[in-house]
Every structure is written in C-alpha cells, then in structure tokens.
C-alpha cells in the first residue's frame, strides 16, 4: 500500500533522513521506533507531504506522492495524527471533527463517521461543545485521532500517541488503534513506548540517526539483542 524508497529529507542544511526505505502492506499495523531525534516524526511528515523531500520516492497505492502537497495527500486517504498539527484549539470538539471531514461530501457519511468516532471515544461525545484548547491531554489525543478518522482514511499515520499521557489513558488510546486496525485501517505508528508498541504491532522498523537499522516482525524485534538491551532494558 505504501512504499518508500531511498527517502532523503533535510531541514535546510541539516540532513535528517538518509535513504530510508520501508513498505507497509494493506491492513498491517507497523511501527517505527527509535531514540529521540532519530527523525521518526520527519518520516511521517515527509509521507504526509508537510515537508519537502530531497530525494527518493514515495508510492501510495501505486501512485507517486513524493511531490504532492499535504492537502492533496489527505484527499488520497492518508491522515496524519499528531497533537501539535491536528487540533484547532479555538474550536469546539464538534467543529474540529467537522474540519476533519472537510473533504467528505454527503451529510449522511459525515454523520456516520462522527457517530463512529463518538462510539470509539465516548468521552468526546460528552465534551462535544467544549473548546479543544480546554481538553485534557488524553482527550486531546482522542480528538486528534478522531479528527483524522473523520476523513475516512485508508492509512493512518500516528505520531507518538502515548507522549505525556497517564498509563491508563495510554491503554485507551492503544485499544482504539487496535479496534481501527481490526476494522481494516492500515496504521503506521511512531512510538517511544517500545514495550507497549511491541505488544500490539505486526511488524516494525527501527530508525537510528536517520537510517533504518533494523526491521522485522514483532517476535523478531522482541527477541533481538540490540532491541532488548537499548529499548526494553532487559
């Protein structure tokens, strides 16, 4: 479904990603793990079209999207979930969700999507007329995911959903992602919480200093000596 070949990305003169290649198949739940500053979020932003890539190719459903802008990529069915990028803090929960469904035509479909989001996160339904800026950290995360779902994406890019959340809330968020994956949404997850991540995903990539250093199935990664030592601390 998504194929990234030799992706290079720079912030001005700072070369962040070096020949990153990865493949995500339809219906898969894939993670990208790695230390702080490795360039994980940059991978997601490159795919979502929020930053220009220097070289390399990105294919989504066989179509090259490397030179497309963020709004076009969103219309093709890729949705990015990241807290700082996804919320309109001065709008209510409902308005945020409506914004997510901006590209969706048809009132019925919008309503169905909204009901699905409220079913997934009942907390949001309670807070529907509250301003997004006044939500708690966990609720914001739920809203960010909900907003992305409103565009009915086939690929969900999720950036650090557990960042700054209490363990119990982290569970809620991870459960929601699993439900989505079971429903057929392909998920590409970037996470720091490796223990938790390796319990849920199918496959994973490890990014260090802008390069993919390891890849493998969940079992392979959990057994890998390097992962165990650096990321799991056993």
């Amino acid at each position: 479904m998504l194929e990234v070949n030799n992706l290079n990305t720079c912030y001005d003169f700072l070369h962040v990603l070096w020949d990153v290649s990865l493949v995500i198949n339809e219906g898969e739940y894939v993670c990208l793990i790695g230390p702080n500053g490795a360039g994980k979020s940059t991978v997601l932003k490159s795919i979502a079209g929020l930053i220009e890539i220097k070289s390399g190719e990105i294919f989504f459903k066989g179509i090259s999207i490397g030179d497309k802008k963020g709004d076009q990529i969103c219309r093709m069915g890729i949705s990015l979930v990241s807290e700082e990028m996804n919320l309109f803090t001065g709008m209510t929960v409902m308005e945020n969700l409506s914004m997510g469904a901006y590209t969706i035509r048809g009132k019925k479909k919008k309503e169905a999507l909204m009901n699905f989001v409220f079913e997934l996160f009942p907390r949001l339904a309670e807070r529907r007329i509250q301003l997004a800026g006044t939500l708690s950290g966990g609720e914001r995360k739920m809203l960010a995911i909900g907003r992305s779902l409103m565009s009915d994406p086939s690929l969900l890019l999720v950036d650090e959903p557990s960042l700054g959340l209490a363990p119990r809330v982290v569970d809620t968020v991870f459960q929601a992602l699993e439900v989505l994956n079971k429903k057929g949404v392909t998920i590409f997850l970037v996470e720091q919480n490796v223990t938790k991540t390796l319990q849920v995903v199918d496959r994973g990539y490890v990014l260090e200093r802008g390069k993919i250093v390891l890849e493998g199935s969940r079992v392979e990664l959990s057994r890998n000596e390097h992962i165990r030592k650096i990321y799991l601390g056993v």
Partner: peptide, 22 residues
Amino acid sequence: HYGLAFRAIGQNMEAARTSGIN
C-alpha cells in the same frame, strides 16, 4: 463551510492542510 475553513486556516495552517484544505 467556507467559514469553518477560514477559521481553521487562521488557527492552525498545518492542521488545515492535513484536513485536505488548500
């Protein structure tokens, strides 16, 4: 629906872009 997009752009342009708005 233009108004919603206007406000979205005013508040968070990147997020508006990820919602498929030019």
